[in-house]
Nucleic acid binder design. Structure first.
Length: 1102
RNA sequence: CCCGAUGUGGCGCAAUUGGUUGGCGCAUCCGUCUGAUACACGGAAGGCUGUUGGUUCGAGUCCAACUGUCGGGACCA
């Protein structure tokens, strides 16, 4: 079978061909089947939600996942890749509500919970086909046939089992917290919802500074100068409606406070107020401290004041004050006391903070810490309860769009003013969160919630995190590490409908509760309940564990009381954090995957998601693993960066700068996109995605590789080389063969290391350099003649074998990143030769390094050759001498014998590459080399330390004689601080960058001069080579076969005579001519310009 | 406001972990080869490494502050 040849490179075409091949031959399945008894490399797929369309950033994330799974498969591991779908959560509820045109309030009214959930179930998979499609098209190998789905009963049962484990180990508790709550929508809001654009709005509210009268007792004595003095703490609030619920004040221990004597602006009564010293200027007019107190009249614009005391906050802590609006007293703790709060600042307000524990998270916290009671005088509709006097029943904000709504904040302020309790009332503009659905202001409200006591496992979580290999490390140490250090308990409750129900049942009085850990347990409990008369029948076989059905399950307590389920659902993050276990329905099935003797399925060796999952999936996986199994959930984690538009901004539909993934793949091929993404920068950097960059990858990398293959295929077919011949031993091959094989093995080694270290950009860049610079632009270019010239002898076979090995190896090295092209290349080669048994590159093993063929001397030698050639070419260019014009010699200064012998080894390569006859080495003794000396800072730094500067200056001043002396004596003795320090040759870098009387070029330590003298012989040879070139061009333009013999006739011209006479045989040989004649009159000749001003006629006949 | 990442020719990225001549690709300009026809190859030009200060004999690299960008969190009185 011959090698396939193609008209041109089309990556999208290759995608299609290879996809078809994979499907027909079940390559993905085979790649796992063939490893089924091998050690595992465990990968977890973070489930996407199929209710949104896949974007180009998913291609990025999944390329990372795919490539490491493919790599480890090739390394001989069994890599199971179970796909999954995230099916619960708010986005799904929202899209359903949007589709049906309903809101949360309608659920249970205009639509039953049953119907609602049914709709969710359908919506969840809305774009599943599209996801499956992109998965296939981008070449992501993941098991789509048997994915885990978070809404399935099996999945839920596993989650319940985890919850039960937590419950049994005292990790679950019910408690109050202050959460954002929308009275208008009647629902709590997640911080996620609050962070949606537009939620924080600038609003003008009535703000009040209230006066809290200090109770004069022993502790407070020091504040009072006279018995009648009215001393008040003043505290500012932008939500006066919380004032009736005030139970404490908070200030900072270290903050300086003052007592200021003044008059109340509204009543004109004398009063002494306490506030932070830093904030005096905010509340008192400049110069008013000099006004006459007795002259003050009620209503004066400037109110006189005097500072009459100064105290540290610590001294005020513990003092008591009179309740501001005494409608109700708290019965659940102490009240009306001054506390210390860390959060108190003097950036605004008065430095004293009004605390209503029911309406602020900080308030709640500081209140709890100090045993304070709370008042919740606003109900869930957002109106005052019945015991708030004249305010009873009034809405604290306009939640009902009532045209007659009267602002309660204002009325409360007025009441305070008239009762001499308001120090200041004014409009205040600030940023306040609003419910994104109703557009109404949010309240912070105490809500019942179930919590996971993650704080209890904090130390262990921190400890185990240190064993995880994070890419990049900073994400694990800093971002995730800091987050763990500041861990709060995990609020598990969500008051929604579509999600996993909390499996906890309680008696009405809350004295007894049960946590259910499996369906079997549930059935047992139901059985008991039936006997107790709370239920009539056992659950059906396929009983849906979702709401509303589960809510109808009533259990029975030890005393025979009915127990009802806590209505909450759990946070969907718990769903996804449970996937290691729930995807296998553990512990009800697949226990062997979790067997500590083998651990074939747990924990994961590798996961990867976007960095935004740090506090999401990465955390929940970790938390659940640590709390339930005292284990990590993953050993290696790559957190990928953001995919931005090419202008560095976020991709968004609004800006119209999104890249459509299907179209991109259709246009450029999946591999170009994958390779671009992996090679452009490390996966955790943000990627500015630019299709021009993808196109560049296609041209430069895949184009070059394709051409290299095409070249190989063209000649190998002509020579019928199918790699059946015995391998020519390396020592019998040419040096350039040994070189490229050496480099290839170095490449294998490094790529293997980079892939193993999760460093795809390093690996891909090295491969690109090898393919472009070394394989194509050096090996193939220099060896081109070997492939088409002469018989199929040993040297030719060696060349084929060498190039074949390079190409096959490259196919394997790129297979994880560019799975389509890799298989295309591999199959084109291997299908023709049958050298390996595999019919796909993805079933082969990753190439093993042959250390014995790595020859660093050889690599360095060739590096010299490449660089010296480049220098000579640049000199030619500067002198405007074309490459086809041969020259006599290159001059090369030699500083040590090693260098000379290295160059000697590649001399012929250099000479033919740059078309020069000889290399002349010049040594010291010639006297024309100018040397330069430089300190070697790396070694000198240790020896000299502070004396570096003077040493560097001294060394810089060395002349040729001094340098010669150093070389002769192998060093130099340096005097400093009365000490003499012996420096060796190693401490200097001696180079030669000039040759007297010659034009030179240099590159680092290399220096090259070119003899540009042209003799008649050289000119004739130059012409001969130009002729060869022109005749070849004519052959090509006539579409002659590469093997056709020709007859050449030249229009006679004196300038051609020397060339034809001396180099006629050479010309004939090169162009496969049987004759080469000069004729005075050639008809049908092509007129061609040979060199400047020399036009000749050439006739080429078959 | 807090935390993290990041800032290197016009653009996208490197720099052996602190060593003195800061590389590569694209784009630009000028050329050139080829029995690989793929806009391939070569060359040139292009930089006060965000700013300021510090540590050090020596800083793109370490530290601090500031500043721009991105992300995460908090947003309260």
């Amino acid at each position: 079978m011959s090698y396939k040849e193609y008209k041109g490179l089309s990556l999208p075409e290759i995608d299609k061909t290879i996809l078809e091949f994979w499907e027909e031959n079940k390559i993905f399945e085979s790649s796992m089947e063939s490893r089924k008894d091998a050690p595992t490399y465990v990968f977890y797929e973070g489930p996407p939600s199929a209710n949104g369309k896949p974007g180009i950033h998913h291609v990025m994330a999944r390329t990372v996942k795919d490539m490491f799974c493919r790599f480890h498969t090739m390394k001989g591991k069994l890599v199971e890749r179970k796909g999954g779908w995230d099916t619960h959560g708010l986005p799904i509820e929202l899209s359903v509500e949007k589709e049906l045109g309903i809101t949360k309030e309608d659920i249970g009214k205009s639509i039953t919970v049953d119907e609602y959930n049914q709709k969710c179930r359908e919506t969840v998979m809305m774009y599943k086909d599209m996801w499956d499609d992109i998965t296939v098209k981008m070449g992501y190998w993941v098991d789509l046939d048997d994915p885990y789905i978070t809404f399935k009963n099996e999945y839920i049962e596993s989650v319940w089992n985890l919850l039960k484990r937590l419950y049994d180990n005292d990790y679950l508790y019910k408690g109050y917290t202050i959460q954002p709550y929308s009275p208008a929508a009647g629902t709590g809001l997640s911080s996620h919802e609050l962070n949606q654009p537009g939620c924080y709005k600038d609003v003008k509210d009535t703000s009040a500074v209230a006066q809290f009268r200090v109770i004069k007792n022993e502790a407070a004595e020091f504040l009072f100068e006279t018995a009648e003095e009215d001393v008040c703490f003043i505290a500012w609030t932008t939500t006066p409606w919380t004032l009736p619920s005030n139970t404490a004040l908070a200030l900072g221990k270290k903050i300086d406070y003052v007592k200021v004597k003044t008059y109340n602006a509204y009543t004109g009564e004398p009063v002494s107020v306490i506030l932070a010293k830093d904030l005096i200027k905010k509340w008192f007019k400049e110069g008013a401290d000099e006004l006459d107190f007795d002259a003050y009249q009620k209503g004066d614009k400037k109110i006189p004041y005097r500072i009459t005391g100064e105290y540290k906050g610590a001294k005020l802590v513990g003092l008591r004050y009179e309740q501001l609006l005494p409608y109700v007293q708290p019965d659940n703790g102490d009240a009306f006391k001054v506390l210390h709060g860390d959060f108190v600042s003097t950036s605004d307000g008065t430095g004293i903070v009004h605390i209503a524990p029911s309406f602020g998270a900080d308030d709640m916290m500081v209140g709890k810490q100090n045993g304070m009671g709370s008042l919740t005088l606003v109900d869930k509709q957002g109106k005052f309860t019945d015991d708030v006097g004249e305010f009873s029943g009034r809405y604290v904000k306009d939640y009902k769009d009532d045209p007659n709504y009267k602002n309660v904040d204002i009325d409360i302020s007025i009441k305070l003013k008239t009762e001499n309790k308001a120090f200041n009332v004014q409009k205040y503009s600030h940023n306040y969160p609003h419910c994104w659905r109703t557009d109404k202001p949010v309240l912070y409200y105490p809500l019942d919630s179930w919590f996971v006591r993650t704080t209890k496992a904090k130390a262990r979580m921190v400890e185990l995190n240190k064993t995880i290999n994070w890419k990049p490390a900073a994400t694990g140490e800093k971002r995730f590490g800091n987050w763990l250090e500041n861990l709060q308990d995990w609020n598990l409750s969500r008051s929604r409908f579509w999600g996993i129900p909390l499996p906890i049942w309680r008696t009405a009085d809350g004295t007894e509760e049960k946590c259910i850990g499996s369906v079997a347990d549930l059935r047992d409990e139901v059985e008991k309940s039936i006997q107790a008369g709370h239920m009539e029948t056992q659950l059906t076989k396929d009983f849906d564990l979702h709401r509303p059905y589960i809510d109808d399950v009533i259990l029975t307590s030890s005393k025979g009381e009915p127990m009802k389920r806590e209505l909450d659902l759990i946070d969907v993050w718990f769903d996804s954090g449970s996937m290691p276990y729930a995807q296998w329905h553990f512990p009800f099935e697949n226990e062997e995957k979790f067997n500590p003797d083998s651990y074939r399925g747990y924990p994961a060796d590798f996961i990867s998601e976007g960095v935004d999952q740090t506090r999401g999936w990465f955390f929940t996986l970790h938390a659940i693993a640590v709390m339930c199994f005292d284990s990590v959930a993953y050993k290696n984690v790559v957190s990928t960066g953001l995919l931005q538009a090419k202008d560095g901004r976020k991709m968004s539909k609004r800006l119209g700068n999104t890249v459509e993934p299907f179209k991109a793949i259709e246009d450029y091929g999946a591999d170009a996109i994958r390779w671009y993404m992996m090679s452009n920068s490390a996966p955790w950097e943000n990627l500015k995605f630019d299709l021009d960059g993808v196109d560049e990858v296609r041209r430069k990398f895949f184009g070059t590789l394709y051409n290299t293959y095409s070249f190989y295929a063209l000649y190998a077919n002509v020579d019928k080389f199918y790699n059946k011949e015995a391998q020519v031993p390396l020592e019998k091959r040419q040096e350039i063969d040994r070189w490229v094989i050496s480099l290839l093995n170095t490449l294998k080694k490094e790529v293997n290391k980079d892939y193993s270290d999760y460093e795809p950009s390093r690996a891909t860049r090295k491969i690109m350099t090898f393919v472009d610079e070394h394989l194509s632009n050096w090996y193939v270019r220099l060896c081109r003649r070997r492939f088409w010239k002469g018989e199929k002898n040993e040297d030719k076979i060696a060349a084929y074998q060498t190039l074949y090995e390079c190409l096959v190896t490259i196919a394997k090295l790129i297979a994880p990143v560019a799975p389509f092209f890799a298989d295309f290349l591999y199959k084109n080669l291997n299908d023709a030769t049958g050298a390996e048994a595999s019919n796909s590159v993805h079933l082969t093993d990753f190439p093993k390094v042959e250390e014995s063929v790595i020859n660093k001397d050889l690599e360095q030698r060739m590096d010299y050759a490449q660089r010296i050639s480049s220098l000579v070419l640049s000199l030619r260019k500067r002198e405007k001498i074309r490459v086809r014009q041969p020259l006599t010699k290159v001059l090369l200064p030699v500083l040590d014998d090693d260098f000379r012998s290295q160059v000697e080894g590649v001399k012929n390569l250099i000479l033919s590459e740059v078309n020069v006859k000889d290399i002349e080495y010049i040594t010291d003794t010639s006297g024309i080399i100018k040397k330069k000396i430089k300190p070697n800072f790396k070694t000198l730094g240790r020896k000299l330390g502070k004396n570096m500067k003077s040493a560097a200056q001294l060394i810089g001043g060395f002349d040729q004689d001094a340098i010669a002396e150093i070389e002769k004596t192998n060093g130099y003795t340096f005097e400093a601080d009365g000490e003499s320090i012996r420096l060796t040759l190693e401490d200097f870098i001696i180079t030669s960058d000039d040759i007297e009387g010659w034009l030179v070029a240099n590159d680092g330590p290399l220096t090259v001069a070119l003899d540009v003298t042209l003799t008649d012989d050289l000119k004739a040879e130059g012409i001969a080579r130009e002729l060869v070139n022109r005749i070849q061009n004519i052959r090509k333009s006539r579409d002659f076969n590469v093997t056709d013999r020709i007859k050449v006739t030249l229009q006679a011209n004196d300038a051609l005579n020397p060339a034809v006479n001396q180099f006629g045989d050479y010309i004939c040989n090169e162009v496969l001519a049987t004759s080469l004649d000069l004729s005075a009159n050639v008809s049908g000749a092509e007129e061609v310009e040979l060199v400047d001003d020399l036009v000749v006629g050439i006739l080429v006949e078959r």
